[in-house]
Simulated scan of single mutants.
Amino acid sequence: MLKVLAHPVRICIVKGLLDKGECNVSHMQNCLDAPQSTISQHLQKLRTAGIIEGRRNGLEIYYSVCNEKVAELINVILSEDK
């Protein structure tokens, strides 16, 4: 799990999903200012690792964090305390 979260874009995606609850690729693309294909590749790695899951709504897929331990990990990784 740490290996998958080792990329800054994936940490940003997971942090955003934890803050927002769920969102689709278009929203992530606007927030991260990255191409849709790049975000989709990162989402696939996160999904394969069991960190996120997708919920289809028509043509869109809304992603959310499905692993409760990830929230703890992200808080530790992004912690300001030393």
Score class of each variant (00 low, 15 high):
2 L>H: 12
19 D>T: 10
12 C>Q: 11
69 K>P: 01
37 S>L: 05
5 L>M: 07
53 E>H: 05
38 T>F: 14
53 E>V: 03
60 E>M: 11
50 G>W: 04
40 S>R: 06
49 A>Y: 02
37 S>I: 07
3 K>C: 11
46 L>F: 03
81 D>P: 05
73 L>F: 13
32 L>G: 02
53 E>M: 11
35 P>H: 06
80 E>W: 10
44 Q>W: 08
25 V>P: 01
75 N>D: 15
16 G>W: 10
52 I>K: 00
66 C>K: 13
11 I>N: 07
27 H>N: 15
2 L>F: 12
20 K>M: 15
18 L>H: 06
34 A>N: 08
45 K>V: 05
62 Y>V: 03
42 H>S: 06
63 Y>H: 08
76 V>F: 10
23 C>M: 15
38 T>Q: 12
51 I>V: 14
44 Q>L: 14
82 K>V: 09
53 E>K: 14
37 S>T: 14
46 L>W: 03
48 T>G: 06
75 N>I: 04
50 G>V: 01
49 A>M: 04
63 Y>L: 03
65 V>H: 07
49 A>C: 08
31 C>R: 15
65 V>R: 01
31 C>P: 00
53 E>C: 06
38 T>H: 13
30 N>H: 10
60 E>C: 03
70 V>G: 02
49 A>G: 02
52 I>C: 01
78 L>H: 05
36 Q>S: 15
63 Y>N: 03
38 T>D: 09
9 V>G: 11
79 S>H: 04
33 D>H: 09
23 C>E: 11
77 I>F: 07
49 A>E: 07
32 L>P: 00
13 I>A: 05
44 Q>P: 00
82 K>A: 11
22 E>T: 12
62 Y>C: 01
37 S>G: 02
60 E>W: 05
62 Y>H: 12
67 N>K: 00
61 I>R: 04
55 R>C: 09
21 G>D: 05
50 G>I: 00
45 K>H: 14
82 K>P: 06
70 V>A: 07
39 I>N: 03
34 A>L: 15
